[in-house]
Design a protein around this nucleic acid. Sequence first.
RNA 1: UCCGGAGUGGCUCAACGGUAGAGCGGGUGGCUGUUAACCACUAGGUUGUAGGUUCGAAUCCUAUCUCCGGAGCCA
Length: 431
Amino acid sequence: MADYILAKHISKHLNEEITLKGWIYNIRKSGKIWFLIFRDGTEFIQCVVLKNEVAEKVFDLKSTLTQESSISVTGIVQEAPRQDIGYELLVKDIEVIHIAEEYPIALKDHGVDFLMDKRHLWLRSKAPFAIMKIRAEIEQACRDFFNERDFTLVDSPMFTPNASEGSTTLFETKYFDRKAYLTQSGQLYSEAAVMALNRTYCFGPCFRAEKSKTRRHLTEFWMVEPEMAFFDIYDDMDLAEEFVSYLVQRALKNCRRELEILGRDISKLESVKTPFPRITYDEAVEILKKKGYDFEWGGDFGAPHEEAIAEDFEKPVMIWRWPAVLKAFYMKRDPEDERYVLGVDMIAPEGHGEIIGGSQREEDINTLLERIEKEKLPKEDFEWFLDIRRYGSVPHSGFGLGFERTIGWICGTHHIRECIPWPRTMARLKP
RNA sequence: UCCGGAGUGGCUCAACGGUAGAGCGGGUGGCUGUUAACCACUAGGUUGUAGGUUCGAAUCCUAUCUCCGGAGCCA
């Protein structure tokens, strides 16, 4: 058993003498009293050092300790109503492990570029700490959600042999004497997997070489992609809203402290329960027209359009039944009107953009072949994918949830690069 | 790729044609309840780079680099 406790468990040790091991977040000095804000990666604790409670050499540490120095601190746990967590430590002894050099990150404003250059240190600060905790909790929630619903995890490969979907730009890499591409989605593999395992999901990084420089884009981001045999578009939307609601409620249940640290308006998350509003593309266009946008049927929604549509709803809104011209070849045509496909996007509130893209898939091989030919995709590369339609084809559906965008919405961060430990953007490959 | 914005001490910014300043961080001193503590003193900058205009350029012009925001594309 370790001879120290984790700071997050401090409340279980009221009036006991305990030892904590960690780092100094901040020091506030006075004459015969000083305060050190201690952190150990599980919680932030104020420690009080009183001149007549400690040895002189311990008291004098106030002039040698620096921000981010590592220490072992022993003291008595006391109630402290003015502290966020309600407790503080009355220090009895401090053992110095390492005196940190002058720390570059002050507890003041810094620019994004500076902080990202120092990402390896910035992670120690309060907001990144809270976001990483929430990210880990939501990732676990994703896995729990699907495990509880008879889904099997079937992860897809990162290396892919061809530029299948065509539309987005892929990262190309050497693969021995051939070329390979980094995956942009696991969906096509999942479509094969559900014919083997009925309901599956994959959860991993995706790569897009788009030259996007906005607060909603990364070149490497994570996506959760469930795929379900025998699901139609309605089942797909039912699952999507249940899933998103589950994630938000899970954050509210298990990440209160972290959301508080981030100053998130919790009331906005509390209302995120099923059912979510569903509108068709045509209805969305009507909303835009009523708001004075000059928008033609058949166009795709840009970020300002998405925001204009989403601002009417306090929950995420699903837009479905899209013009076929806008969507990928594998989406199923609406049987009632060939101009539409049974695709759905989910737009998060508060300007966080599209968090889900999904659809019912085209299960008829001839229709699929038509679209492959029409979009001039390399048919030979899709032979394995067409096999899914040759051997016991069934209706099936799925969607992909952009993980960082979802975290960004739950945490209320301005830019999704804060929602991944080591962000990769067009301009950033380090650290 | 296109359209905007910004590059000034370690950091965040000010000065917008006339002697480069402040706050934070660092150093020194003071303070027994601080909450990004406070108070006093102190060190620290050839203003992204290369040209040009001018008696004089951080400031105006040209080129270039970097970053930021957005568009397109997307999660």
